[in-house]
Amino acid sequence: MSAPIRVVLNGAPREFPAPLTFSELIDELALGGRRLAVERNGEIIPRGRLGEESLADGDRIEVVMAVGGG
């Protein structure tokens, strides 16, 4: 029995019932294949490590993309 993982994702609270990696998080959010960058507690997680790093309870996570701007 693992405790649920509570994180703040892009400013909003989220809860996951079981541990998951950042790659699994991206798939869960239907963002697979998109050009993204991920930051956990102010530190960037390089793309190559998204499948190795797992979310931890209390993480503040940012998932960003490029949008129109000047």
Partner: peptide, 20 residues
């Protein structure tokens, strides 16, 4: 060309086209 960096719109953008 310039672009801005913003949070992805969680849960609302599956299949939505992207700028890049």
């Amino acid at each position: 060309v310039t672009v801005a960096i913003r949070r992805t719109n969680i849960g609302q953008n599956a299949g939505e086209p992207s700028l890049l």
